[in-house]
Every structure is written in C-alpha cells, then in structure tokens.
Simulated scan of single mutants.
Amino acid sequence: MGLVELFILAVGLSMDAFAVSICKGLSLRKIQIKHIVVVGLYFGIFQGGMPFIGYLLGNQFSEKIVSVDHWIAFILLLIIGINMIKESRKDEIDEIENNAENTGLEVKGMLLLAIATSIDALAVGVTFAFLKVNILPAVTFIGITTFVLSSLGVKIGNVFGSKYKSHAELAGGLILIILGTKILLDHTGFLQKLGTHLF
C-alpha cells in the first residue's frame, strides 16, 4: 500500500471522528486550544491504536487465507463504508454522539466516543495483516491524520455548526468503498486483464 492509498484510507477512517469532533465543537461555548488538542489526541490515539490491534489479530491467521485476503479486505471496507453512508443519512449522528453535549471533555465520555469511532479501524487493521503493510508507519500516519482532522472538526463545529456532519460521514464511506474496490481489482489483476483485452 502506497503513501497516497494510505492517506486516502486515513482520511476515510477519520471521518467518523471528524463528525463527532464537530459535535464537540458545537457543545463548547468558548473554545480553547486545550479543547482542540484533547479531542484530537483521544481520537488520534484510538484511531491509530485500533488498526495495530487488528493487525496483530490478523497476523495470527493471515498465512492460512492468503489466497482470499483481497476479498476479505474488500468486504470489510465495503461493510464499513456502507455503514458510514447509512449513518450520514440519519437525521442525528447517533445516540452516543448526541450524548457528547452532556459529557464535555470528561475522560469517561471521551473514551466512549473514541472507542465508538475507531471500531472500524480495528477491521481495517486486519486487512493490513493480509496486505503485509508496514504497520508502525501506517498506524502512526493514521493517528496523526485523525488528530489533525479531529482538531479541525472541533473548530469547524464551533464556528459553522452541524451542517458538515453528515457530509463528512458520506465522504468517508465512499472513500473506503472505492479503496476496497481498488484493492480487489489490483489483487485479482482485473485491470491488467481489461487493459490487455482493450489494447
């Protein structure tokens, strides 16, 4: 997986956290730098940590199913992407995200939000094991990307309001579906075969 693909994946994964960060920005009357940093760190650490756990789990059995790994990656990313698109079509983000207004930046509330928004990344970590991704740079990159976008989300939510929440999740879902399809096509050699027939 190249740097461009990793960046696209990182952005797609971070859209849930970005949407929730907008909610946090909405709930904070007077925003401070520490608020932005705290939210960014929670989401960045969990979004980077979950793929690492998934990678460790996937490594245990990746060699046994290497012949179908691209299908597993495609199906996981497709399911995650579809779920994110469904969430974007709801009138409200989700019950746990709606509770963000009441939890402030308390440890318990932020942990719940960070875990809830990073579960998808756990499944992506499993695909990393199948694809033999260099895991430490990958999860670091994902964590930093999520930190930046989540921090930005807090500011956007505080300034512009809630209209970007659903758009963020929709974009994230589409990105993951496209990436999963690309992985499948690359590993099955479909594009090469198509090019051979056309030219």
Rank of each mutant, 00 (worst) to 15 (best):
L9Q: 11
L9K: 13
A10R: 13
A10D: 05
V11E: 10
V11W: 01
V11N: 15
L13R: 10
L13M: 15
L13E: 01
L13F: 03
S14E: 14
S14Q: 09
S14A: 08
M15T: 10
M15G: 04
M15H: 08
M15Q: 06
M15F: 06
M15Y: 02
M15L: 07
A17Y: 00
F18K: 11
F18M: 15
A19R: 12
A19L: 05
A19Y: 02
A19Q: 09
V20E: 04
V20M: 01
V20Y: 10
S21Y: 05
S21F: 07
S21G: 09
S21E: 04
I22A: 12
I22N: 08
I22F: 00
C23S: 14
C23Q: 05
C23G: 05
K24C: 00
G25D: 12
G25T: 11
G25R: 06
G25H: 08
L26D: 02
L26N: 09
L26Q: 13
L26W: 11
S27M: 08
S27E: 05
L28A: 02
L28M: 05
L28P: 02
R29T: 13
R29W: 01
R29L: 09
R29Q: 12
R29I: 01
R29K: 15
K30R: 14
I31H: 11
I31F: 00
I33Q: 14
I33T: 14
I33L: 14
I33V: 05
I33N: 04
K34Y: 03
K34L: 13
K34H: 14
H35G: 03
H35Y: 01
I36A: 05
I36F: 00
I36H: 05
V37E: 08
V37T: 06
V37F: 12
V38C: 04
V39G: 12
G40L: 07
G40H: 11
G40Q: 13
G40R: 15
L41F: 02
